[in-house]
Design a protein around this nucleic acid. Structure first.
Length: 500
RNA sequence: GACCCGGUAGCUCAGUCGGUAGAGCAUGCGGCUUUUAACCGCCAGGUCGUGGGUUCGAUUCCCACCCGGGUCACCA
């Protein structure tokens, strides 16, 4: 059915015409707001009648009783009940719809049932709602809000986030918590003397990760540009330039499938610190996670949301987090003395038992990685650092001092998922050139995820790159973890979706 | 990409073993000056995801496609 013919929409449009005939402007220019809903309870205190308040917000509940009406006004702070009398506010202002944006003025009082209420003496329509918001009905049973006929279609809630937010205060609270978390992350980095920088989103060459890029075209330069898949190579250029500690929080773009943990654009925190090795970065990540968890806990504590999530777990809020070494923990999980001593056949058999797919094409290191994911990673619940990865699995990390078969790399896992990935960064331009060339050969052979040789980056390295530690943290996934959110689309305001 | 589940009124859903569909809420009208899922009465509202097939007849059965969700694969 077309929207234009919809009887509900038509009724609202008819009301606008009626209002205009009565001299009421349906869309205002502003309002002198002097109070917010949440402060009304405190302003009234224990009294039966209280001071005059002046509030603006949306009509979120409406109970008309003839010439009198009880309604609720919702704003960013919460909601407060309104009491309207037709003979007081006037006929033109009395007939409102759920969803209308209004401004009201009047004294506070307490109703027979004890609820703090604004006795509305003056009412202004600020914006007429022409389309019904999908409000459900709410009741409170044993202190818990129960919704009836709620706006529950996850797809529509993501597509029309404005409507989702408008009718679900807890969704606003969740995204507020996300904002507090990134603010805390910035505060943490700034406090350590890190400089927040911005590097190009549009790049002539992409690199820093293995992923398929989005490709676009610049008309005036008549050349292809890629949306970045990582910030890494530009941030390291800045360390070469003398910014010892830099970080960036921004979007990376990867041209891959969409599922509950993948959105084509996502928020990444990367930070690089000169003269620090991976042990220093591990301490940074630990403190960062605690700062993020604390911010999320503080933001959600007052709302009662997700109180059983990791952000409320004392072990997450305090640290220190467990450490485990890659090879010994895998050996132990497989109940062998040394996993590297296993034959290929033994590894394959073990992988088969673990249910690994596509065994035939897997190299020995990949087999071990699959086994590690199945037997170790997936069983990690509380934040745990996994350290010292085999060299074959970590082409961007420096070899481990004293054991060149391993690298100085760690990942942080929790609830079976990766939260952070970090290395002592490679700073040898000759080695780096060889690795780029290997990538370029893969790319030439058709590997869409391989990158090319970044000559400009090599030139930067050749000037002399200080040793440094680097970390990447997926902000969406970190927030999902801390709040116990299952879908990435529920922590992204406007997730990527097919057009309707 | 494979398999499974779903798409019916503005919202949440039911239903039709094949005979062009119902409820609650919302909307409209009437009543109601302390209610809070307000209440009472009446009315209206749907090309049952799209296209094709079988059939006298398809929202229902079959096929294809679109959209969404789930599981798996992919995503160092």
């Amino acid at each position: 059915m077309s929207d234009e013919l919809n009887y509900v929409l038509q009724a609202r449009r008819d009301k606008i015409a009626a209002l205009e005939a009565l001299g009421v402007a349906p869309f205002a220019y502003g309002f002198d707001r002097r109070n917010v809903a949440a402060e009304c309870v405190g302003l009234l205190g224990e009294a039966g009648e209280g001071p005059e308040v002046q509030l603006a917000g949306r009509v979120v509940a409406w109970r008309a009783h003839g010439k009198t009406t009880f309604a609720h006004l919702g704003d960013a702070s919460g909601r407060v009940q309104l009491y309207l009398k037709k003979d007081v506010v006037g006929e033109a202002s009395y007939e409102l719809d759920l969803g209308d944006v209004i401004g009201v003025r009047g004294p506070l009082f307490r109703t027979r049932t004890g609820e703090v209420t604004v006795k509305v003496e003056h009412l202004e329509l600020l914006a007429k709602s022409l389309r019904p918001l999908p409000f459900g009905k709410e009741e409170v049973v044993d202190g818990v809000v129960v919704r009836h006929s709620a706006f529950a279609d996850g797809e529509q809630r993501s597509r029309q986030r404005y409507a989702d937010l408008a009718v679900h205060p807890e969704v606003r609270a969740l995204f507020t918590a996300r904002s507090r978390m990134t603010a805390a992350v910035r505060g943490f980095m700034d406090g350590l003397g890190y400089l927040e920088v911005e590097t190009p989103v549009l790049q002539p060459l992409y690199g820093g990760a293995a992923a398929k890029p989005f490709i676009t075209h610049h008309n005036a330069l008549d050349m292809p540009l890629y949306l970045r898949i990582a910030d890494e190579l530009y941030l390291k250029r800045l360390v070469i330039g003398g910014f010892d500690r830099v970080y960036e929080i921004g979007h990376d773009f990867r041209n891959e499938g969409i599922d509950r943990t993948h959105n084509p654009e996502f928020t990444m925190l990367e930070f690089y610190e000169a003269y620090a090795d991976y042990t220093v970065m591990m301490a940074r990540v630990e403190a960062l996670l605690i700062a993020a968890a604390t911010a999320v806990r503080d933001a959600l504590a007052a709302t009662g949301l997700a109180t059983d999530a990791p952000a409320f777990d004392p072990a997450v809020l305090q640290g220190p987090f467990a450490r485990m070494e890659w090879l010994p923990s895998l050996s132990s999980a497989l109940r062998v003395a040394d996993v590297t001593a296993m034959t290929d056949t033994e590894l394959r058999t073990a992988a088969e038992h673990a249910g690994v797919h596509g065994l035939a094409n897997l190299s020995r290191p990949k087999l071990m990685d699959e086994l590690f994911q199945h037997h170790v990673e997936s069983k990690i619940d509380r934040p745990t650092f996994v350290v010292d990865y085999p060299k074959e699995l970590s082409p961007l990390a420096k070899p481990k001092r004293g054991n060149p078969a391993l690298t100085e790399r760690f990942e942080l896992f929790a609830k079976g998922r990766e939260l952070a990935n970090a290395f002592s960064e490679l700073n040898d331009p000759i080695d780096q050139r060889q690795r780029f060339e290997a990538q370029a050969r893969l790319k030439a052979a058709g590997d869409e995820e391989a990158s090319g040789v970044d000559e400009d980056y090599l030139r930067a390295m050749e000037y002399g790159m200080p040793p440094m530690g680097g970390v990447g943290v997926g902000i969406d996934r970190l927030f999902m973890y801390l709040t116990g959110t299952a879908h990435i689309r529920d922590v992204i305001l406007f997730p990527t979706m097919r057009p309707e």
